[in-house]
Design a binder for these strands. Structure first.
Lengths: 361, 361
DNA sequence: ACCTTTTACGCGAACGTTCGTCCACCCCTC
DNA sequence: GAGGGGTGGACGAACGTTCGCGTAAAAGGT
């Protein structure tokens, strides 16, 4: 191992030309060289296994062909789907991805971001919801290179990509209402998150449209883990023993919800119907199979990278957030009369007006 | 945005010194400068927000302080735990992580690896089990920079870090045997994977030690997804309706196993006991809560990076694979008489001799 | 007052590229 | 046989650093 890298100078020497000429031949630009010299250079390069040094290239071209990806906990299925798609898309466009993961909550967002900037990434994708309130991070995001964010950035100025969570929640809640439920609880993520508030609004929208005033005690906060979701469920059952449906904000939490319901002796969907969010791959195989809002994480990753790259290329990013539609996947857990895997796309024209931007992403 | 980066030359000019002097002051090396000039330079740098250009630095120092991480599908909870810990550890040691994810199976491993090498990473961590048979990848892994692998590398020469899966499987199977089960099926990952074969060997070890000849038809292959695991479970039930226990190779697959058992009207653990592998965070919250072998993914990531960094630093990597111990977490799904969360560490002295290296990792 | 040592910097070179300009030919052409 | 227009390739410069050595001026010694 540790064999020395071969530089263009070496191959130039062996081919008997100046290194600049070799460089021109090798990067395939418009060269003014005879076919034979070119062939000779190529042959030597081939034989020696020449690979251009991208760091030198980056230095002169003032571009690293690398994007930085700062994420929240990648252990989360949703974020990892996003990251995988983003990396894939970047690579398809000849860009590498430098990753900055913020696993723990007390980690310093600016430090992670600064590390990426110090490495002169061409652009940054922010996918760390925990940073959505951080103004120092927001400043960095605006200051150096083009950026795209998945979450709200205080002060704006950074293009957003996300899903229409308000519409999604409205859709899910409306589905439960259409099944005859009127006492619908919800187990949510942390209230301080935009996505959670968007979903709460959608949930309330649907209830009000059905003439039901949403009770504040029927929305209980959890922290995305099954454990807290189970606790939240117990609290809901205690507050309203007549509750017959739960809208939960993630499939992982739904595992906790199902577990708590089972422990309380409530059958699903017989006693309590459950609809969740995310539609992780395992949702279909839970017992009972879980109805869930499919959030297009992979598409979001793809779009985010494409947006970023075009922004790096000098194009103006969209001023409005790009919101991808979510889709309700109906399965066993909500006890729908149509228990088939009927996917119902969101109707384009919703009666409620489009929600303001800060509420949706 | 897109504010120009400030270089050391600019700050030198403003401070009235040569840029080399400024450089010496700023990188804190042993400088021979007066305290006042140093202070002046620092002040200017501070004011202008100077950040050294790491790509230029990399060029002269022949080191990027970056490691490459090539992974299999990061969407998998196990791999993402590993990756998160690896990135964290790398960052703690002032190294960035360039990621190459191989989401889809037909992706070209050498291309991903070559991309990292072209970017002159200082070392590479391979965590893509799907590449374990790829000799071209193995050659790349050996050739340029230090590497550490999670999976077996054909031809050797790359230090390995992993878990003792054979011991783990033996432990799990033995636990089921101790509960009185004699007809124990297993739902495995793809047979071609080393980890799967190691676990099969451990499973067979335990059965033979108990005087039971493992029946070939009681080991059914799946592909890590709940769907195929459910199918495998149905096949097991059909082959041996008297089967009373299942050892399944991942928690995600266990979801499918539980689902298939429920659909077949078998209660868990009443009719069929289930022990799984991985101990993902959700395992505890499945219904029933899942007994599982805890695999130390995070520790593995940490160790892998530490090993790689010391290897980059010039130290000889260990010739023998580093195998971390697994631990059986007993919960409800195996119907253990001690349903408490009693964790039983693997006894140090196993009657069977240490398994050969290629079987364990 | 001269030589030596120290202090405080400057300076050239190198890392491996890309890019634009410059120049030495060779082949025509009138 | 001098001017003209390609061809084919050399060459200098730049990107932003780090590193080692060179060297003025100031300080110290006899």
């Amino acid at each position: 191992m540790a064999r020395r890298y071969v530089s263009v100078k070496e191959i130039a020497a062996k081919a008997g030309v100046s290194f600049q000429t070799a460089s021109k031949v090798l990067n395939g630009g418009n060269v003014r060289v005879s076919a034979e010299t070119a062939a000779r250079i190529m042959a030597v390069a081939e034989k020696l296994g020449y690979r251009p040094n991208t760091v030198a290239r980056s230095l002169v071209q003032q571009s690293t062909s690398t994007i930085g990806l700062v994420t929240g906990d990648l252990t989360d299925g949703a974020l990892s789907q996003f990251a995988v798609a983003a990396e894939r898309t970047a690579r398809r466009h000849e860009h590498a991805v430098l990753i900055g993961n913020m696993a723990v909550h007390d980690e310093d967002g600016t430090a992670v971001l600064q590390m990426l900037i110090d490495r002169r990434v061409d652009g940054i994708i922010a996918a760390a919801p925990q940073l959505e309130g951080d103004t120092a991070v927001a400043d960095l995001l605006r200051r150096y290179v083009p950026a795209v964010s998945l979450h709200h950035v205080p002060g704006g100025g950074v293009p957003l990509v996300g899903s229409n969570h308000r519409d999604g929640a409205r859709l899910a809640t409306r589905h439960l209402l259409s099944l005859g439920h009127t006492r619908i609880g919800t187990v949510t993520g942390p209230f301080r998150r935009h996505v959670v508030r968007s979903r709460l609004h959608g949930y309330e929208d649907a209830l009000r449209q059905a003439g039901i005033e949403p009770g504040e005690d029927l929305a209980v906060e959890a922290d995305w883990t099954p454990g807290t979701a189970a606790a939240a469920t117990r609290l809901l059952l205690q507050r309203d023993p007549e509750m017959t449906a739960i809208f939960v904000h993630s499939d992982t939490m739904a595992i906790g919800v199902l577990s708590a319901l089972a422990a309380a002796g409530r059958s699903v969907p017989g006693d309590v119907a459950v609809v969740s969010c995310d539609d992780m791959p395992f949702a279909e195989y839970l017992t009972p199979s879980l109805s869930s809002l499919r959030v297009p994480f992979a598409q979001t990753g793809e779009r985010a990278v494409e947006l970023l790259l075009s922004s790096i290329g000098g194009q103006d990013p969209p001023a409005e957030p790009v919101l991808l539609p979510v889709e309700l996947i109906v399965r066993g857990s909500c006890g729908s009369p149509a228990p088939a895997s009927a996917a119902r796309p969101l109707p384009a024209q919703t009666s409620a007006p489009a929600a303001p931007r800060t509420e949706d992403s």
